[in-house]
Protein backbone atom coordinates (compact mmCIF):
# COMPACT_ATOMS: atom_id res chain seq x y z
CA UNK A 1 0.00 0.00 0.00
CA UNK A 2 1.59 3.27 -1.03
CA UNK A 3 1.11 6.77 0.38
CA UNK A 4 -1.59 8.86 -1.26
CA UNK A 5 -0.60 11.56 -3.74
CA UNK A 6 -0.91 15.13 -2.38
CA UNK A 7 -4.22 16.24 -3.87
CA UNK A 8 -6.08 13.03 -3.06
CA UNK A 9 -4.69 13.01 0.44
CA UNK A 10 -5.84 16.61 0.94
CA UNK A 11 -9.42 15.75 -0.03
CA UNK A 12 -9.33 12.45 1.87
CA UNK A 13 -8.48 14.30 5.08
CA UNK A 14 -11.02 17.04 4.36
CA UNK A 15 -13.74 14.41 3.81
CA UNK A 16 -12.99 12.20 6.80
CA UNK A 17 -12.58 15.05 9.32
CA UNK A 18 -15.49 16.96 7.75
CA UNK A 19 -17.72 13.91 8.19
CA UNK A 20 -16.53 13.58 11.78
CA UNK A 21 -17.26 17.22 12.61
CA UNK A 22 -20.58 17.05 10.71
CA UNK A 23 -21.59 13.92 12.65
CA UNK A 24 -20.85 15.58 16.00
CA UNK A 25 -22.69 18.74 14.94
CA UNK A 26 -25.70 16.78 13.74
CA UNK A 27 -25.88 14.58 16.80
CA UNK A 28 -24.79 16.91 19.62
CA UNK A 29 -26.07 20.11 18.03
CA UNK A 30 -29.62 18.89 17.53
CA UNK A 31 -29.59 17.24 20.97
CA UNK A 32 -28.26 20.29 22.89
CA UNK A 33 -30.40 22.78 20.97
CA UNK A 34 -33.49 20.67 21.66
CA UNK A 35 -32.69 20.73 25.38
CA UNK A 36 -32.09 24.51 25.21
CA UNK A 37 -28.70 24.06 26.90
CA UNK A 38 -27.03 27.48 27.30
CA UNK A 39 -23.84 28.17 25.32
CA UNK A 40 -24.53 25.30 22.93
CA UNK A 41 -22.97 27.32 20.10
CA UNK A 42 -19.82 27.88 22.13
CA UNK A 43 -19.54 24.17 22.98
CA UNK A 44 -19.96 23.12 19.36
CA UNK A 45 -17.56 25.79 18.10
CA UNK A 46 -14.93 24.65 20.62
CA UNK A 47 -15.37 21.05 19.54
CA UNK A 48 -15.00 22.11 15.91
CA UNK A 49 -11.81 24.06 16.68
CA UNK A 50 -10.40 21.11 18.53
CA UNK A 51 -10.99 18.86 15.52
CA UNK A 52 -9.54 21.42 13.08
CA UNK A 53 -6.47 22.09 15.23
CA UNK A 54 -5.75 18.37 15.58
CA UNK A 55 -6.32 17.84 11.87
CA UNK A 56 -3.90 20.64 10.94
CA UNK A 57 -1.04 18.84 12.72
CA UNK A 58 -1.54 15.69 10.74
CA UNK A 59 -2.64 17.38 7.49
CA UNK A 60 -0.67 20.64 7.37
CA UNK A 61 -1.93 22.03 4.05
CA UNK A 62 -3.21 25.54 3.46
CA UNK A 63 -6.95 25.62 2.91
CA UNK A 64 -7.76 22.26 4.50
CA UNK A 65 -9.51 23.76 7.56
CA UNK A 66 -11.83 25.79 5.34
CA UNK A 67 -12.65 22.84 3.08
CA UNK A 68 -13.25 20.60 6.11
CA UNK A 69 -15.64 23.24 7.45
CA UNK A 70 -17.49 23.43 4.14
CA UNK A 71 -17.91 19.65 4.07
CA UNK A 72 -19.00 19.55 7.73
CA UNK A 73 -21.41 22.44 7.09
CA UNK A 74 -23.08 20.70 4.15
CA UNK A 75 -23.22 17.43 6.11
CA UNK A 76 -24.94 19.30 8.95
CA UNK A 77 -27.24 21.18 6.57
CA UNK A 78 -28.71 18.03 5.07
CA UNK A 79 -29.49 16.63 8.53
CA UNK A 80 -33.25 16.82 9.15
CA UNK A 81 -33.71 19.71 11.56
CA UNK A 82 -35.58 23.00 11.82
CA UNK A 83 -32.48 25.18 11.44
CA UNK A 84 -30.47 24.55 8.27
CA UNK A 85 -28.88 27.75 7.07
CA UNK A 86 -27.73 29.03 10.48
CA UNK A 87 -25.55 26.03 11.36
CA UNK A 88 -24.08 25.98 7.84
CA UNK A 89 -23.08 29.65 8.05
CA UNK A 90 -21.79 29.16 11.61
CA UNK A 91 -19.61 26.14 10.79
CA UNK A 92 -18.18 27.63 7.60
CA UNK A 93 -17.36 30.95 9.28
CA UNK A 94 -15.66 29.19 12.20
CA UNK A 95 -13.60 27.15 9.76
CA UNK A 96 -12.70 30.31 7.82
CA UNK A 97 -11.52 32.06 11.00
CA UNK A 98 -9.44 29.05 12.05
CA UNK A 99 -7.97 28.86 8.53
CA UNK A 100 -7.02 32.56 8.65
CA UNK A 101 -5.40 32.09 12.07
CA UNK A 102 -3.33 29.17 10.75
CA UNK A 103 -2.30 31.12 7.67
CA UNK A 104 -1.25 34.09 9.78
CA UNK A 105 0.43 32.32 12.69
CA UNK A 106 1.38 28.91 11.33
CA UNK A 107 -0.03 25.45 12.01
CA UNK A 108 1.43 25.18 15.51
CA UNK A 109 0.00 25.86 18.94
CA UNK A 110 -0.18 29.65 18.44
CA UNK A 111 -2.33 29.41 15.32
CA UNK A 112 -4.58 26.84 16.98
CA UNK A 113 -5.08 28.97 20.11
CA UNK A 114 -5.78 32.13 18.11
CA UNK A 115 -8.10 30.27 15.74
CA UNK A 116 -10.01 28.81 18.69
CA UNK A 117 -10.27 32.27 20.26
CA UNK A 118 -11.72 33.80 17.06
CA UNK A 119 -14.12 30.92 16.40
CA UNK A 120 -15.48 31.03 19.97
CA UNK A 121 -16.06 34.77 19.66
CA UNK A 122 -17.88 34.20 16.40
CA UNK A 123 -20.10 31.54 18.00
CA UNK A 124 -21.64 34.13 20.31
CA UNK A 125 -21.45 37.01 17.83
CA UNK A 126 -23.30 35.05 15.14
CA UNK A 127 -26.64 35.76 16.80
CA UNK A 128 -25.91 39.49 16.83
CA UNK A 129 -24.67 39.51 13.23
CA UNK A 130 -27.77 37.61 12.11
CA UNK A 131 -29.94 40.21 13.90
CA UNK A 132 -28.15 43.02 12.05
CA UNK A 133 -28.64 41.19 8.71
CA UNK A 134 -32.27 40.50 9.57
CA UNK A 135 -33.32 43.89 10.89
CA UNK A 136 -30.69 46.22 9.44
CA UNK A 137 -28.57 48.99 11.01
CA UNK A 138 -31.39 50.53 13.13
CA UNK A 139 -31.27 47.48 15.41
CA UNK A 140 -27.72 48.48 16.45
CA UNK A 141 -28.92 52.01 17.20
CA UNK A 142 -31.76 50.50 19.22
CA UNK A 143 -29.44 48.21 21.18
CA UNK A 144 -27.03 51.06 22.01
CA UNK A 145 -29.90 53.33 23.07
CA UNK A 146 -31.37 50.58 25.29
CA UNK A 147 -27.97 49.73 26.80
CA UNK A 148 -27.36 53.39 27.69
CA UNK A 149 -30.77 53.60 29.40
CA UNK A 150 -30.22 50.29 31.23
CA UNK A 151 -26.78 51.33 32.48
CA UNK A 152 -28.27 54.64 33.64
CA UNK A 153 -30.99 52.80 35.62
CA UNK A 154 -28.48 50.56 37.44
CA UNK A 155 -26.11 53.49 38.00
CA UNK A 156 -23.22 52.27 35.81
CA UNK A 157 -21.19 54.29 33.32
CA UNK A 158 -20.91 53.36 29.64
CA UNK A 159 -17.21 52.53 30.04
CA UNK A 160 -17.92 50.03 32.86
CA UNK A 161 -20.57 48.42 30.67
CA UNK A 162 -18.05 48.09 27.87
CA UNK A 163 -15.59 46.51 30.31
CA UNK A 164 -18.21 44.00 31.46
CA UNK A 165 -18.99 42.99 27.87
CA UNK A 166 -15.27 42.82 27.01
CA UNK A 167 -14.63 40.56 30.03
CA UNK A 168 -17.47 38.23 29.00
CA UNK A 169 -16.14 38.08 25.44
CA UNK A 170 -12.62 37.47 26.76
CA UNK A 171 -13.81 34.52 28.85
CA UNK A 172 -15.69 33.05 25.93
CA UNK A 173 -12.68 33.52 23.68
CA UNK A 174 -10.55 31.80 26.31
CA UNK A 175 -12.74 28.68 26.16
CA UNK A 176 -12.18 28.50 22.39
CA UNK A 177 -8.45 29.15 22.78
CA UNK A 178 -8.13 26.27 25.28
CA UNK A 179 -10.03 23.98 22.89
CA UNK A 180 -7.71 25.00 20.05
CA UNK A 181 -4.62 24.36 22.19
CA UNK A 182 -5.95 21.01 23.34
CA UNK A 183 -6.71 20.05 19.75
CA UNK A 184 -3.18 20.97 18.69
CA UNK A 185 -1.78 18.72 21.44
CA UNK A 186 -4.06 15.87 20.43
CA UNK A 187 -2.85 16.41 16.88
CA UNK A 188 0.61 15.24 17.96
CA UNK A 189 -0.91 11.91 18.98
CA UNK A 190 -2.54 11.72 15.58
CA UNK A 191 0.81 12.31 13.85
CA UNK A 192 2.33 9.47 15.89
CA UNK A 193 -0.66 7.27 15.09
CA UNK A 194 -0.31 7.95 11.38
CA UNK A 195 3.41 7.12 11.49
CA UNK A 196 2.60 3.82 13.20
CA UNK A 197 -0.09 3.15 10.62
CA UNK A 198 2.32 3.83 7.76
CA UNK A 199 5.09 1.78 9.38
CA UNK A 200 2.74 -1.19 9.77
CA UNK A 201 1.99 -0.96 6.05
CA UNK A 202 5.56 -0.37 5.04
CA UNK A 203 4.83 3.11 3.61
CA UNK A 204 6.58 6.41 4.02
CA UNK A 205 4.26 9.19 5.25
Amino acid sequence: MTALPGKRRFWAYAASFGALWGAFEALLGVFLHALQVPFTGLMLASLGCLILAAQRRVAPWAGISLMTGLIAGFCRAITPSTALLGPLIGIVTEALLVELAFLLLGRGMLGAVFGGFLAALWSISQGLVVKVILYGAPVVELAVSMAEKLLGWVGLTVSSGIWAVATLFGLIGLVGAVAGGLGSRMGRSLVRYREELMASRGDSP
Binding site: R9, A12, S16, L28
Partner: peptide, 26 residues
Amino acid sequence: ARRLPRRGVLLRWMKEAVRIAEGEFE
Protein backbone atom coordinates in the same frame (compact mmCIF):
# COMPACT_ATOMS: atom_id res chain seq x y z
CA ALA B 1 -27.31 7.85 30.97
CA ARG B 2 -26.23 10.25 28.23
CA ARG B 3 -22.87 11.97 28.54
CA LEU B 4 -20.76 14.32 26.48
CA PRO B 5 -17.79 12.98 24.48
CA ARG B 6 -14.61 12.75 26.51
CA ARG B 7 -11.08 13.46 25.35
CA GLY B 8 -10.30 9.75 24.91
CA VAL B 9 -13.39 9.26 22.80
CA LEU B 10 -12.55 12.28 20.65
CA LEU B 11 -8.99 11.07 20.11
CA ARG B 12 -10.24 7.63 19.15
CA TRP B 13 -12.62 9.19 16.65
CA MET B 14 -9.96 11.39 15.15
CA LYS B 15 -7.65 8.38 14.82
CA GLU B 16 -10.49 6.69 12.97
CA ALA B 17 -10.67 9.73 10.66
CA VAL B 18 -6.91 9.49 10.00
CA ARG B 19 -7.23 5.77 9.31
CA ILE B 20 -10.08 6.40 6.90
CA ALA B 21 -8.19 9.19 5.14
CA GLU B 22 -5.02 7.13 4.78
CA GLY B 23 -6.64 3.84 3.90
CA GLU B 24 -9.99 4.10 2.31
CA PHE B 25 -9.42 6.77 -0.27
CA GLU B 26 -6.32 5.12 -1.65
